[in-house]
Amino acid sequence: MKNQNNKTILDVQNLHANTQSTEILKGINLTVKSGEIHAIMGLNGSGKSTFAKVLAGHPDYTVTQGNIQFEQQDLLALSPEERAQAGIFLAFQYPIEIPGVANSQFLRLAYNTIQSKRGNDELDPLEFDDFVREKMKLLEMNPDFLDRSVNEGFSGGEKKRNEILQMALLEPTLGILDETDSGLDIDALKIVAKGVNHLSNAQNAMILITHYQRLLDHIVPDYVHVMEAGRIVKTGGKELALELEKHGYDWLHDDRHNNVGVSA
């Protein structure tokens, strides 16, 4: 398979996680190497978004079994902010609105915090302004969004673009996009996809969580995984998404014995 010589960024083994004593994740295995794009598909309630949140360290979920190595570190030992500093980025399915905080202020605070933790120089407001405007061009965002409160009054598409803008600024090693395509019209989807493709390179990796194949027309994955009831039940190449689109998720039950539990 592709990139076999590349280094492993994420290694998830037998991951089980609960929320309020209900088990949601029931043994996930997944290996992601640098330069790869993975898509995770599945029906509502299959555990896709939970998996994304567990990777980012959401406090509502407790890991009960298994482990996660992120670039040779024990990810589960890190707080959410340490994970972000180490290079994990989660683009939220529902980005939070923060009235009262200017987007520019928030973006600079996040950028500088992460830069200083990584031992890089911070930018003053003027330098940052130039820097962020460049990045906004990539996502065809109006600079007015800098002066507005974080995500407040943004349309669905604008919020998602603001998420990708943050990813562009923070330059994560692993970007996790949780249903970034939901609520996007086709034009916004193309812009977001263009941004993600631009940011994807041989040193980093992406996990795209999506319901639909249409995002994968624009961001071509190396692997497609299908989740069901808290597990990855099938893994394949990009053509798997097309099969799912064509036949629906029920189709899996017909031949799942072929590929159960195979990780990339």
Binding site: P59, L90, P95, I98, F106, L170
Partner: peptide, 12 residues
């Protein structure tokens, strides 16, 4: 909201 900010690297 706190988690959102922490996921961007800010301390609690």
């Amino acid at each position: 909201e706190i988690f959102y900010l922490k996921s961007r690297g800010l301390s609690e």
